[in-house]
């Protein structure tokens, strides 16, 4: 997470929650594929699983900085992350890929086209994430909207194990309100924009479920090394 201090006040017209979410956004991570390994599906998947594991550590720390998240009980914090971790990873990939045509930016040094995805056995997932990218590109998704939508995806993860639903509902409401407020100020010309953003969440959920299923089958196959946190969250699903 950024080393600078959190913003104490927002400029006029800026939503405080959105400002804090912008500040909390993790730095980008490099994939660093092992140059000693020959290119193969195993190498591609190993690189992606390692990258995902490192991003997960950052995303857990990020979640703690969502205003209101750390007021939830620890068990509910865990439940939300266990349900939404892949949605968060995918939304970050989709946002990074907005300016790239038909390629997915898993990291600045790991950009995958359809041919490479097919070689890694990831064509179906690649196609699904690109559908999400196209949707956000057509809307010209902004960074402020991306960070808020990502926090909403976490708060709205529909875990079956929430203990204090009222508290989680409160978090959802405050994030929803932040998005409504941002859109009201920044996009008065399109009163339906908040709704359009929220309506992308089912596709994100669907794509995430596809990804989890795929990586669960890779795990069962046993040929790709996976780090413990990534494994732990795959097992939680």
């Amino acid at each position: 997470l950024p080393q600078r201090n959190p913003p104490f006040s927002s400029s006029q017209g800026e939503n405080k929650v959105v400002t804090l979410l912008l500040w909390a956004e993790p730095e980008r991570v490099c994939a660093m594929p092992d140059p000693a390994l020959p290119d193969s599906d195993i190498k591609a998947l190993t690189t992606l699983c390692d990258l995902a594991d490192r991003e997960l550590v950052l995303n857990i720390s990020w979640a703690k900085h969502i205003p209101g998240f750390s007021s939830l009980c620890l068990s509910d914090q865990m439940s939300l992350l266990q349900s939404a971790w892949m949605e968060i990873l995918i939304l970050r990939v989709a946002f990074r890929s907005l300016t790239y045509e038909d390629r997915l930016v898993f990291a600045e040094d790991y950009i995958m086209d359809a041919g490479q995805a097919k070689s890694a056995g990831l064509l179906e997932l690649h196609t699904a994430i690109l559908q999400l990218v196209r949707r956000y590109r057509s809307m010209r998704l902004e960074t402020e909207e991306f960070v808020t939508l990502k926090a909403i995806a976490l708060a709205n993860s529909d875990s079956m194990h929430i203990e204090d639903m009222e508290a989680v509902q409160g978090l959802q409401d405050s994030l929803h309100e932040a998005l409504l407020d941002y859109e009201h100020v920044q996009h008065r010309e399109d009163p339906r924009r908040t709704g359009k953003l929220i309506m992308t969440l089912p596709l994100l959920r669907q794509t995430s479920a596809k990804a989890v299923r795929h990586f669960c089958s890779i795990k069962q196959d046993g040929r790709v090394p996976m780090h413990k946190l990534f494994l732990e969250l795959l097992e939680a699903n």
Partner: peptide
């Protein structure tokens, strides 16, 4: 919690949160 010990540990150890 035992089953999800890394997530549990990371949530407990990550830096102090910013709250409203």
């Amino acid at each position: 919690k035992e089953k999800h010990k890394i997530l549990h540990r990371l949530l407990q150890n990550s830096s102090s949160p910013v709250d409203l």
